[in-house]
Write a protein that binds this DNA or RNA. Structure first.
Lengths: 337, 337
DNA sequence: AAAGAGACTGGAAACGTTTCCGGTATCGTT
DNA sequence: AACGATACCGGAAACGTTTCCAGTCTCTTT
């Protein structure tokens, strides 16, 4: 069942059928209706390969996800998938390991699949413009603050919360509750990682509230936001010092691991130690105690990312760096002292 | 940069280039090498659309995921994606809502994308053979026990844990620990749902250990494995009766919600109530207390599903229904009495 | 009434592959 | 020396669309 059959059955030309299928104006209402009816009747579905072939492009947009079990990304992934479909595109998904190069992965994906656009979901994003230039199509980075660069870069778009400010506010929340000895267990940070960004917010919040950061209260872990590492890191911290009343964690899952470590060391939450985190996963609402956390608006981030990408497809000059709010969700893991 | 350019540069015909690219035997070693070098030199990538067009099929396999925030599926999705790529196929992913018809979604996907095969990830699967017949390509259902049917159905393949037996064993574990008053909060079950299947395992385990199932100890919730529903359901249960020492939950996340509800009602776990679940998510290892649960081998399920699908593609008569073990992971949420 | 504009339509090339079919060259066999 | 088999290669059709171009028909304008 091809376009030719439809054409024959309607006694019109192939071109005409193609035109009604593509909503071209130059076709009479009568013919359009006849073709549409026939298409309906035959349950005809256009051959995408043929279409892509002549257009020399596919209607696919690639999504590169750093697949290190970060639960936050699974929730934005669903929205992203839905949105992409809603716009009539198809999604081709590619998971990469935590040490892979996403820009490269994206470039390969683009060449193989003739993508229209690319969307990066999480992961480090400290590329130089020349590294970025291997991507020849519009792309947006979701969950990445280009904070150390500048928000007026015109090469690409981004959507994320303000990682620095969010960590800053989380820390201030602890300070507001009377905490002065505040610890943090953080994934190893390089220059432009999310970890670094959030850590700076933490440090600055302390300083600007008259608290000198105490590096014995900071424990770095390997990996990136993995729970076992966070658990071990918290254990090391506790071994070194117990002289803190609050703990900042940079993600919900690592926070849950940290709470576990605290419990295992006989610390009660929040009586002995208050814990605050960043992410706002559903599951942490059911943690015991309920985790106090800064909510990353997952759906909104997914929706915005795709929306911006669509704008970029329409207008090659369009570019946007969007920062979303990450409001506090009060749980029971923080108390005032 | 097309196959013609390669051909010209090597002064061979287009057919010959195509042959070396497709590993056909009828080409001399000398020519093959020359072509391969040129391909390398030009970083030539074949046009997939053209290829698909003439082959009248794409190398894509569709994955339909029931996207109701079930964390278990996100973990198998990653493996599935990796495996599909490893076999040289591309994955086209489609999330559906919790009330959608996955077979229909799969059929549409197939027609639109000219898929080679289909993989269903979770969700109800109580279709009749005639409903199944709208899918014209091989497919495998991951995480679905065709228990009420039979394991020798030849229309499709499946991979899952034995839901009935797993729930049975979980219940027996509680009984072994001395529990006799065992409650359960379960998603609403229809005839052939996973919920029904696991519930039957629960009931039979009780009976066959001389405990008459007490329906006041069973609370049904709406939705499917959602945390808020599980929380509410547990609250309703507690309101009705507190006369139980153990609670079986059918997934890890709902178990965490239930533990939360128990805590909120002043019940300590496991001192007052033991909780056991089925899933084995990473995150529940860090629940407080650590959740005792039956581990669904997510990676293995993903790997097996894709592997079986590949076999089905090679041999149209191939079909397989595989049941995997779900071993107990002892946490701290169950105690002996 | 002729001309020009505008609405609609059909023919055909083009997109980049794969694959069938036929052809040539080489080689061993008789 | 003639023959068949084998190995290798090129030509060309085919896959199902889109789109450019040219053409016809109708209508308005002069």
């Amino acid at each position: 069942m091809t376009i030719k059959d439809i054409a024959k059955n309607c006694s019109v030309s192939v071109s005409t059928v193609s035109r009604v299928l593509n909503h071209h104006p130059d076709v009479s209402e009568e013919v359009r209706q006849r073709v549409l009816d026939e298409v309906e009747r035959c349950a005809y579905i256009p051959n995408n390969s043929a279409r892509d072939l002549v257009k020399t492009r596919s209607d696919a947009i690639g999504v590169v996800v750093r697949g290190n079990g970060n639960l936050f990304f699974s929730s934005v992934l669903k929205t992203v998938s839905d949105e992409i479909e809603r716009y009539g595109y198809t999604m081709v998904l590619h998971y990469i390991g935590s040490d892979a190069d996403e820009v490269n992965a994206g470039a390969i994906l683009e060449r193989e699949k003739k993508l229209q656009g690319l969307l990066f979901l999480g992961g480090r994003f400290d590329y130089t413009p020349s590294e970025l230039s291997v991507i020849g199509i519009p792309f947006v980075c979701c969950s990445y603050t280009n904070y150390f660069g500048s928000l007026d870069e015109k090469d690409y778009s981004s959507v994320s919360i303000d990682d620095y400010a969010t960590a800053y506010r989380a820390t201030e929340e602890l300070i507001r509750r009377g905490h002065r000895r505040i610890a943090a267990v953080i994934p190893s940070r390089n220059d432009r990682s999310i970890s670094e960004l959030r850590y700076r917010g933490f440090e600055d919040a302390l300083r600007e509230n008259g608290i000198e950061p105490d590096e014995t209260l900071v424990e770095e872990t390997g990996g990136c936001f993995e729970m076992p590492e966070a658990y071990e890191g918290t254990c090391r911290l506790l071994k070194r010092t117990e002289d803190f009343t609050a703990l900042l964690m940079l993600s919900d899952t690592t926070a849950m691991a940290a709470m576990k470590a605290l419990e295992d060391h006989g610390k009660r939450i929040p009586q002995d130690v208050s814990v605050i985190a960043i992410d706002g996963l559903n599951v942490s609402e059911y943690a015991i105690p309920t985790l106090t956390t800064m909510i990353q608006p997952a759906e909104e981030m997914g929706r915005e990312s795709v929306c911006i990408l669509m704008n970029m497809l329409k207008d090659p000059a369009y570019t946007r760096h969007k920062l979303l709010d990450a409001p506090l969700r009060e749980g029971a893991s923080v108390r005032s002292i």
